[in-house]
C-alpha cells in the first residue's frame, strides 16, 4: 500500500489486489476488544466506569457500521484487476487507523498479551498464529496510513 498523493483534504493510496483482500479481510474481524477492557483509573475506584464502557460500546457499534459501509462503497476503491486506488479523506484515514489499531491491540489480547508482542511466551497454534498474522497485517496498513497523516515520519 503506497501513498500516491496527500493533500490537506484527502489521501490517495495504491493497493495491490492481495493488499486490498487483506485489508477487507482484516476489517471483518472488528471488534475484538470488549468495551470493558480498559479501565478509567487505577487509584480512583469510585469513578463511574459504566459511562466509559457505554461510550466505548457505542464507539465500537458506530465503527462496525462504518466498516460495513466502507466495505460496500466501491467509489472509494477504483482500479483494474491487479491494482486499486483508495481515495479517502483525512478524517476517514484517521478513523481507519484507529480501527486497525484496535484490531492489532485486540489480536495481541487474544494471543494472551505476550511480551514482547510478537512472540514472548506464546504457544503457537492455529489460533494464535492467525492473530499474530493479523497484528502484522494491521501494523503494515497503519504505517502506510501514518505516512499520509503524519508526513514527518
Amino acid at each position: 500500500m503506497n501513498l500516491l498523493q496527500a493533500s490537506n483534504e484527502s489521501l490517495v493510496f495504491q493497493l495491490s489486489k492481495s493488499e486490498k483482500n487483506y485489508l477487507f479481510g482484516i476489517l471483518q474481524l472488528y471488534p475484538l476488544i470488549s468495551p470493558a477492557y480498559l479501565s478509567m483509573s487505577k487509584n480512583a475506584p469510585w469513578l463511574d466506569r459504566t459511562l466509559l464502557e457505554g461510550l466505548m460500546r457505542r464507539e465500537r457499534q458506530n465503527n462496525r457500521e462504518k466498516i460495513d459501509s466502507f466495505l460496500i462503497d466501491n467509489d472509494q476503491m477504483e482500479g483494474d484487476s491487479d491494482h486499486f486506488q483508495l481515495q479517502i479523506s483525512r478524517t476517514q484515514a484517521d478513523w481507519l487507523l484507529r480501527v486497525l489499531n484496535d484490531l492489532r491491540l485486540g489480536s495481541w489480547i487474544m494471543m494472551g498479551k505476550p511480551f514482547p508482542a510478537s512472540s514472548g511466551g506464546t504457544e503457537f497454534n492455529e489460533q494464535t498464529s492467525s492473530y499474530l498474522a493479523a497484528m502484522q497485517i494491521c501494523g503494515f496498513f497503519q504505517m502506510a496510513l501514518l505516512k499520509g497523516l503524519a508526513p514527518a515520519l
Binding site: 480498559l38 478509567m40 483509573s41 487505577k42 487509584n43 464507539e59 489499531n101
Partner: peptide, 21 residues
C-alpha cells in the same frame, strides 16, 4: 481529565486518570 482519557482510549491507548495525592 475524563474527556482526555476517553479520547485517548478511542485511539486504543491505555490512559487513565489518577487522583493526585
Amino acid at each position: 481529565a475524563e474527556h482526555y482519557v476517553h479520547e485517548l482510549q478511542k485511539y486504543g491507548l491505555h490512559a487513565t486518570l489518577e487522583a493526585r495525592v
